[in-house]
């Protein structure tokens, strides 16, 4: 599989303000890539640059092999890209069907593809029965579904979703998430801007954390491993100096005592290290109740990275 999105040193400045600094990224075909970051981190500007809505200041980027700075290729990029902007931007005085039909025409979809596509997407999003109602009468969640259908109607190679579940009620957010998971099953390339860490963790193959520049990138597991490491928690009846000494003699330097019945130990390879830890504790007279792994949430990782980013400027 090739790269659906590729950037190198991509930079955008608005006057003296740098919105995106030297973004280097590769998103593979069929990948769901989550883009996390606080407000003003440059996520929306990145999407706008990649969909040729705003120009780059510096660096390189391509979508499905088309360079974003090549005027001749920009129409091909727009055709290859489906976009759900932060504001759905539907025509409130048109019906759901008329909205989608208009965009189908603007994306050069033949009539049959438009008709079939609208029916398939509206049925999948449980909006088919409302196709002839004015969008202005819809709830926020319904409008979001129509906007998602609009983004996918021309069968894009890359779909950019900017905060697709933001400010939706839980039920609409769930339907939207399930729909994105369906896109993932269909091996579509999705670039998902989100604040919702749980959503990113559940949906995305890989995650990039952005704060003007890319702070970290990887799968949730890779981010945990590289930024947090592995921590084993051993619950004993009572922590003693003998137990700590036994563990240190095995070479574990980072040992944290929590209360008087819990030890948190930084380990390199849990599969290899945990049996040795349990054995050493038992030999030192400790009574093991149970052993667990301390797994940081994506939120823990995100907050650590964003704070580090703030600290460094």
């Amino acid at each position: 599989m090739g790269a659906a999105i590729e950037t190198e040193g991509l930079t955008k400045k608005f006057g003296g303000l740098t919105a995106v600094r030297e973004l280097t990224l590769r998103v593979e075909e069929g990948e769901v890539f989550g883009f996390l970051g606080p407000n003003g981190a440059g996520k929306t500007t990145t999407i706008r640059m990649l969909s040729c809505l705003v120009s780059k200041t510096d660096g390189y980027a391509s979508i499905c092999g088309h360079r974003i700075d090549n005027k001749e290729e920009q129409l091909s990029i727009r055709r290859a890209v489906g976009i759900l902007p932060e504001n759905v931007g539907l025509y409130e005085d048109l019906t759901a069907y008329a909205n989608l039909d208009f965009y189908g025409k603007m994306y050069d979809c033949p009539e049959r593809q438009r008709r079939d596509g609208i029916e398939r997407l509206l049925k999948a999003l449980e909006m088919w029965e409302r196709r002839d109602q004015l969008v202005g009468t819809f709830s926020k969640g319904m409008k979001q579904k129509i906007a998602i259908a609009r983004a996918l109607l021309h069968d894009p190679e890359v779909t950019f979703l900017d905060e697709p579940t933001a400010s939706l009620d839980p039920e609409s957010a769930k339907t939207t998430r399930e729909f994105i998971l369906q896109l993932k099953k269909e091996k579509r390339t999705v670039f998902l801007n989100t604040h919702n860490l749980d959503e990113a963790q559940r949906i995305c193959d890989r995650i990039g954390i952005m704060k003007t520049s890319l702070v970290a990138v990887g799968s949730p597991e890779e981010l945990r491993a590289s930024l947090w490491g592995h921590k084993t928690v051993i619950h004993v009846v009572r922590v003693s100096d003998a137990l700590i000494g036994a563990l240190k003699s095995l070479g574990f330097e980072k040992i944290e005592t929590v209360g008087d019945d819990k030890l948190v130990i930084d380990v390199g390879d849990p599969d290899a290290d945990n049996p040795a830890i349990v054995g050493a504790v038992v030999r030192a007279g400790g009574e093991v109740r149970f052993v667990t792994e301390l797994r940081p949430t994506l939120e823990d990782i995100y907050l650590r990275l964003v704070k580090q980013g703030s600290g460094s400027g």
Binding site: L53, L75, R78, N87, V88, G89, Y107
Partner: peptide, 14 residues
């Protein structure tokens, strides 16, 4: 006002 310009501008049109 309706913020519908962005999706329109994203279409493959000059």
């Amino acid at each position: 006002v309706e913020k519908s310009l962005e999706p329109l501008l994203a279409t493959p049109s000059t």
